[in-house]
Amino acid sequence: MSPVRSDAQLSGNVIRIGPVDGVVDAPEPLCVVALGYGEVEDSFHVWVTETNVELFERLRELATGAPREEKRLIAVLVTEPPGGRANPDAVAAVESVRGAVLSLAVELGPAVRLNIVVARQAADAAQVLRYLASPDADYVTGSTFDLRETA
């Protein structure tokens, strides 16, 4: 059993994987997959391997499930793991999700718009998520919005 699987919860159009602190606001039609990272003993394995295993499961369901007429609009919200950029395991966790999400954006083409938001905490991402849900962002896919750079 994955140590992060049990934390995967669906609430409205928000899927949480791991411990995500705070409110995640996902305006329609955006679906948000929010990733959180708690203090664990084997942090690299749990944050990189187990979290991505769960992420791929959820994204497969979201992106390749029953056909829909409208385009799917997904944002993966990464809340920074403990230690931030000073912690190599935390860096690896964020980079692994970027590698996954950006590759899937290339693979899935026009049917799915897929972006990644990296923030210190979920609440910091509210404005960006509203933007990604708006028609103004129609040409935005395969992009990283790293809010840590502006904090």
């Binding site: 690299f44 990189v48 935390a90 690896a92 590698g99 395969g142």
Partner: peptide, 27 residues
């Protein structure tokens, strides 16, 4: 090289290699 770009139909492998190169840089 898959750790330096996005690749279609290779997302899991890319995730693994982006993690490694990111970890090396941080270390």
């Amino acid at each position: 090289q898959a750790s330096l770009r996005a690749e279609r139909e290779n997302a899991v492998y890319c995730a693994s290699k982006w993690a490694v190169t990111g970890w090396v840089r941080a270390m």
